[in-house]
């Protein structure tokens, strides 16, 4: 997305800049020339970001990928074993379950977060009393450190002390404690709910910022042309916030697939591995078990899954265009 520099974009920007007269050599001129040259300026401007990513991400990542092809353990380099780790994982029931868990967890959570986040953004994108408070309050779940909010959910889902159960009991809806984290499917649902709670503000604030950029005049003009709320939404709001929506969804998908802390604190992947995600499994194997190569392979497996998720999210949203 974002590369519209195909045909149909020839007007680029070089137009107004006249090539500086040859022979002028002052530093300022050189700087000016640099600033006006797309090629050089472009590279200068991306260099800091690239340098950071190269040193602190690309390089360790390359090491990580290399590890996944070795049988190395913590503190011992190991030797190259080709696809052995991947072959091993392919036959591993726990790993296969983890793949399914991840798809389910990410799929359901991202859709819910998108829908709820969008609804919330639309709700607060207007003038009302207490707007400031509401907009600040809705960010709270996103702000509080996950390690601590996970503890809260851990307690909210307690088998005996759950406040949810207490409320439902008081309302006469259930007559015995709910086994939130002891039953595989309930545990999955409970973790998805916690993830949605944390992620909704991320969507809401991103989409709200997007909504803010939609010029009011467009709505007024459309209203004058007799467009109802739905067509206004469909033909003005939706296309205009599309770029933001895509970015937010894609990144949320990535964060959800890579989720670690919430699961680790609330269930540690249990019951019976029903809530293991790639992150928790990789951590368990690489760090706790010391099988660095195999853990790296689990993590590397994330890549194709992420690419698939991202492609789906991207296609779904873009189809509307």
């Amino acid at each position: 997305m974002g590369r519209q520099d195909g045909p149909g974009f020839p007007k680029v920007t070089a137009g107004p800049l006249q090539a500086p007269l040859p022979g002028v050599r002052s530093g300022q001129e050189a700087l000016g020339r640099l600033v006006e040259s797309h090629q050089a300026l472009g590279w200068v401007m991306v260099t800091p970001a690239l340098a950071l990513l190269a040193v602190f991400l690309a390089y360790p990542f390359a090491l990580g990928v290399w590890l996944s092809f070795t049988d190395s353990r913590i503190a011992s380099p190991g030797r190259f074993v080709g696809l052995e780790n991947f072959r091993y994982l392919a036959g591993d029931g726990v790993f296969r379950l983890t793949v399914l868990n991840t798809l389910l967890y990410a799929g359901v959570a991202v859709v819910l977060k998108f829908v709820l986040g969008f609804a919330l953004a639309l709700l607060v994108n207007r003038e009302f009393r207490g707007k400031r408070f509401v907009r600040a309050a809705m960010l709270l779940p996103w702000i509080v450190p996950t390690s601590l909010s996970a503890l809260v959910f851990y307690w909210i889902y307690d088998s005996q002390f759950s406040v949810l159960t207490w409320v439902l009991r008081a309302a006469g809806l259930v007559d015995r404690p709910i086994n939130y984290l002891g039953d595989p499917n309930l545990a999955r649902a409970a973790l998805i709910a916690a993830n949605v709670w944390r992620g909704v503000p991320f969507f809401a604030i991103g989409l709200l910022a997007g909504l803010q950029t939609v010029p009011r005049e467009l709505y007024e003009a459309a209203a004058m042309d007799g467009a109802g709320p739905w067509s206004r939404f469909r033909w003005i709001t939706w296309p205009l916030i599309m770029p933001v929506a895509v970015v937010v969804t894609v990144f949320s998908t990535i964060m959800t697939v890579g989720d670690f802390q919430l699961i680790w604190i609330v269930t540690k992947g249990g019951p019976a591995n029903a809530t293991h995600l790639f992150g928790t499994l990789a951590y368990q194997r690489a760090v706790q078990g010391g099988f660095l190569g195999e853990g790296a392979a689990v993590a590397v497996f994330v890549l194709p899954v992420l690419v698939a998720c991202v492609a789906v999210a991207y296609r779904t949203l873009r189809r509307e265009d």
Partner: peptide, 20 residues
């Protein structure tokens, strides 16, 4: 390329990264 770098999960990065 910059986008792809985001796909790398930190859980596996931290051991190689600690060396750097």
């Amino acid at each position: 390329a910059i986008f792809l770098t985001y796909l790398v999960p930190p859980v596996i990065l931290f051991i190689p990264l600690s060396r750097i």
